[in-house]
Design a protein around this nucleic acid. Structure first.
Length: 358
DNA sequence: TTAGGGTTAG
């Protein structure tokens, strides 16, 4: 291929970096980074922002942070990129710390910054900070559009301020699926099962298209109330009625529902029939149900699978050994202990029942 | 002829 003798202008880089970000390509981002240095564009704020974004979306927060710290100056967009980077990678404390630092340095946040910080407040239970942000939004007259409104509903709902969340939700003139999800999931998490299911009914009637997140919310509401039949109905309707392909999270909810009802074999079969390999979360759900219903046979199979995934997860063995102990299967407790020793596991909490050292 | 934001089981 003939090499083109074209020098990219500095406007080109943010575009290319955005493409790297969109496809989560760290490798491409690093290559662009090399070119940025080659062309001496490392001081351009648009380019710096593109690079930071590229590193943080691929989870390389430390590299992004170095670029952020070394930037010749920090404008609102760069602050927002770094804060949202922490937020999206579940580093709530660091996101809040950086937000406070930004405000202390006299940079005034806008709706993009605030939406990101509100998502942190939702997740980390920071109702106080979230409430302060809401006051700030009102005082500054910042327009509460679709995204900021959704972030507010989510923040209040997650923090249990359901009536405030509901008022804001009802007031919003334009809502999308994410807005409905924030409200439905908030209701579900706090055990407002009927309200969550009712809202799902309204959503369906209003011809809003539910997505996979919506169904996690609705199915987890069913789990709260042990509504197995309703859960099954909704689970099956996902694909047939709403054209939403169930993911492992939805299977997880069904395993939880079946497990609570003591239908452990069915739950195990559901996992075995999945198109994906079972993850530690779904197996842990089934193991918990086995413990609650004293089903050692299935628990043994589940523990074996969990061990394959996480050989050093001591808790898995503790559950099984306690189940053995509860039914007086001391020999099995002893065998399990030897297995663990062979796998070079150190002392496990809860093991003292047979250790004789208490 | 450039950049940043919201919703997901246990």
């Amino acid at each position: 291929m003939r090499k083109l003798d074209v020098t990219p202008g500095k406007h080109t880089f943010p575009f290319v970096l955005k493409a790297c970000t969109n496809c989560y390509s760290l490798l491409a981002g690093k290559q662009i980074h090399t070119h940025v240095l080659k062309f001496g564009l490392e001081l351009d704020l648009y380019v710096i922002n593109g690079l930071i974004r590229c590193y943080v979306v691929t989870g390389h927060l430390d590299v992004g942070r170095v670029l952020f710290e070394d930037a010749p100056e920090r404008n609102l967009v760069i602050w927002t990129t770094m804060i949202s980077g922490y937020a999206q990678n579940f580093c709530s404390n660091e996101a809040l710390r950086l937000f406070h630092q930004m405000v202390a340095e006299g940079v005034e946040p806008n709706s993009a910054t605030l939406a990101s910080v509100l998502s942190v407040c939702a997740r980390s239970g920071s109702l106080d900070v979230g409430g302060q942000i809401h006051v700030f939004i009102r005082e500054k007259g910042i327009e509460v559009g679709l995204i900021l409104g959704t972030a507010l509903v989510d923040m209040y709902a997650k923090n249990g301020a359901i009536s405030t969340a509901r008022e804001l939700f009802e007031e919003m003139p334009v809502k999308n699926t994410a807005t409905w999800n924030a409200m439905i999931c908030g209701l579900a998490v706090h055990g407002y099962v009927e309200e969550a299911l009712e809202l799902f009914g309204v959503l369906a009637r209003e011809r809003i298209r539910p997505n996979d997140v919506t169904f996690v919310g609705v199915l987890s509401a069913c789990c709260h109330a042990g509504m197995l039949d309703t859960g099954y109905e909704i689970f099956h309707s996902m694909k047939e009625k709403y054209e939403v392909e169930p993911k492992i999270e939805h299977y997880g909810c069904m395993v939880d529902l079946l497990g609570r009802d003591g239908r452990l074999f069915e739950a195990e079969e559901l996992i075995n029939g999945m198109e994906w390999k079972a993850d530690i979360v779904i197996l842990g759900t089934l193991l918990g149900a086995c413990r609650n219903h004293g089903n050692i046979e299935i628990a043994e199979r589940v523990v074996k699978k969990m061990f394959d995934l996480e050989p050093h997860n001591h808790g898995v063995y503790v559950v099984l050994s306690n189940m053995y102990a509860e039914t007086g299967q001391w020999q099995d407790v002893s065998i399990l202990r030897k297995v663990m020793k062979n796998k070079s596991l150190s002392k496990i909490p809860g093991w003292s029942l047979v250790d004789g050292d208490i």
